[in-house]
Each structure stands twice: as C-alpha cells, then as structure tokens.
Simulated assay, not measured.
Amino acid sequence: MTFYDGIYPFYPKQITPFIFNLDLLTVILVFLVLAATFIIVLPGIRGKARLFWMFRMILSLFTGAVIVAVNFTSDWAAANVKANTTYKSFSSAFVSAEVGLHVGLSGINVTLKGVPLEQLNETIDYNEVFRWTDVLDKDYTDALEKGLPNPILYIAEKFTLNSPCGLYYQYRYSGQYASATMWTAFCCWLVANILFSLPVILYAGYMMVATGTFIFFSLASFATTQNIPACTFTIGTVSFQIHFSLSFWLSLATGVLCFLIGAMVVILDSLMPEKMREAFSVGVDDSDEDSLGEGYMNATFVDEVTAVPATELIEIRTEDYL
C-alpha cells in the first residue's frame, strides 16, 4: 500500500490531539475564582488575623483542589519509552518516536510523539483517550477504524477485555474504588471547613484526620494494581513497565498534610481550647459575657429608686404578689 497526499488509504484524516482536559480545566478555574474571591475580601480583615486567615484559606483551597482534580487527571501511573517502531499497518516504514502510557482513574491516555516531530511527510503527535466508562473495547474498535499508529493500538490492546494480561478489570475497578473514596475525602474536607467556622474546632480536626484517612484508602485501592502479574510492553526492541506517577504522589502528600493538620488541631484544642478559638476567631463562652461592654441606666430612674426607702420597696413587692 502507498501513501496518497501523505495520508494512508482508507483511513480518516489525522486529527489534532487535544491539549487540555476540559473537566480538569473546569476544576482549576473554579478554585482559582474562589481564591480570587478570598483575596478580594482579605483587606477587610484587621490585625494579625489577616495573615493567618489568608494562609488557612490558601492551604484549604489547595487541598480541596488536589482532591477534586486528581479524579480527572491521567497520570496516576505512567510509562514512557523512546524507540524505533513501525508506524502504521500495511507499511514497513519505521519512525523514531516517544511512546507514553498514562493511567488515570477513568481510563488511559496513549501518546505518540515523533522525534523529530515531522516524519514521513506528516506531523506525528497523538494523544488518544480510552475510557473505562465507555467500555474500552469500543474505543479500541474505533481506533482500529481510524487507522491509528501501531504503537497506540498495541498498548490499547493490552487493556481490552480479551487481553491475556488481565489489566482491564484490575485497573478499572481499582480506579473506581479510588475515585469513590477520593470523593468521600472531599466531603470530609467540606465538613471540616464548615466546622472550622464554628466553636467546635476539635471536631474539625477529626474531620481533617478523616480526610487524610480516606485519601490513604484511595491510594491503597489504586496500589492494588501492582499486585497483578507484570505484563510486558515492548515497543520496537525496548520494553517498559508502569510506575506510579505525579497524581499518586501528590495525593499521598496531600493525605499526609491533612492527617498532620487534623492531628495538630486535635492536640492543640485539647491543651489550649481558648487560644484555638481565639486563633480561629470563633465562639464566645458564657464566662466572657461580662467583657462585652458596660451597660448604662437612665439617671432619673436611678434617682427615683434610691429616693424610696427600703421598707416601702418591700411593701410594694408584697402587694405585687397579692
């Protein structure tokens, strides 16, 4: 088979790979808007509480953004290799390219980027998505119909239902459980932020500990993918294996941060509850009611009361009860 105007016959024209994950971009924009809103409000806070409040809000928004964003990223696990490999079916042409596999909670991304980018009279730059929710076999069939390059089809085939590697079920269900526990961690984070604005700082600390705990559960769920027998990925003459990537380690760091913050809040609130309430600017005890300010009484009324003898006051009170 030969080329026709740089395109293989019977295959649709090559489309440009996507650059941004729209779901992830939406999450980032939402939290950036929240951060901008808090920065606008910041000048209205007086004294030293301004710096503490700003630090607490930024740290909280960062934690929430990570918890939500990692549900939409595609780099919980990854593998990359540079090799000389066949390009497409019905052709013996070889290309030098970087092949990447990126595993997320909802599917996989397979990338192919030529080195150099322009080879065989076309731009070699692919980023193909195969999602668990759409039944990956259907996406794989569509990829065959499109005539995608051989390295992409080879890797995607490893995650199909009929593959002897058995990767599909392990990665799909591990990703689903990891996503579910991560959303539970997000709910705990929301409750913790609400409790931090109430005079129940101790329970807010407990919820931060719960947030970190559920993040650890999510990581443990995804880590079970390492228990399956290793499946060999060979591109050209080079083999590679899947390893944990950025989202996994970022989630681990966030979980440790939440756990440490929660434990610190619980300990400090047990040792010095009054100072903790003062630091978070919440609650006023009944014992502090006297410090609310001085009261004032009408001077004329005071003069009239003091002018009446005590015996007459007693008689007046007795008549009231009769």
Rank of each mutant, 00 (worst) to 15 (best):
T318Q: 15
S218A: 05
P43D: 02
F62C: 07
V129T: 12
V103T: 05
T133C: 13
D269F: 08
F248I: 00
Y8T: 09
F196K: 07
G114L: 00
A97C: 00
A210T: 10
L51C: 06
S92I: 11
E294K: 08
Y154N: 10
Q226C: 08
G6I: 02
D137E: 07
L22S: 14
I314V: 14
F240Y: 08
L25P: 01
D285M: 14
L22P: 14
L167H: 04
S106A: 12
S270H: 12
T85F: 05
N227V: 08
L313N: 10
T160W: 03
I267V: 10
C187M: 13
C165T: 04
D288V: 13
S287D: 15
P199Y: 01
D137Q: 00
I124D: 08
F52Y: 10
R50E: 07
Y173G: 08
A35Y: 09
L257C: 10
Y154V: 11
T224D: 07
S287Q: 15
K88R: 15
T85S: 07
F18M: 03
I40W: 13
F130D: 00
N84L: 13
L268R: 14
I316M: 15
R317D: 14
G107I: 02
M208N: 09
L250T: 11
M297W: 15
L271V: 14
I124V: 07
R46N: 13
W183E: 03
V200C: 07
V33D: 09
F52G: 07
F55Q: 12
D23K: 10
E315Q: 11
V66N: 06
V200D: 10
D125I: 04
G175M: 00
V81I: 11
V305Q: 14
V191F: 07
P199I: 00
V81E: 03
M272Q: 13
I267F: 11
N127R: 13
A65Y: 03
N298D: 12
A156T: 04
S89D: 15
V282Y: 02
P116K: 05
N84I: 13
G212T: 01
P116S: 03
F94N: 15
K146M: 10
T16F: 11
D303M: 14
V33K: 12
I261V: 09
A204F: 05
T16A: 12
V200K: 11
T160R: 08
A253M: 06
Y177A: 11
V95D: 05
N162E: 12
M1Q: 12
P12I: 04
G212Q: 06
P164V: 04
T311Q: 14
G175A: 02
L219I: 01
V209R: 01
G262T: 03
L112N: 01
V256P: 08
M54H: 03
A78Y: 14
D134Q: 11
S247L: 02
S60M: 08
A180K: 10
S247V: 03
E122K: 00
L24K: 05
Y8D: 12
L167M: 02
C231A: 03
S247N: 02
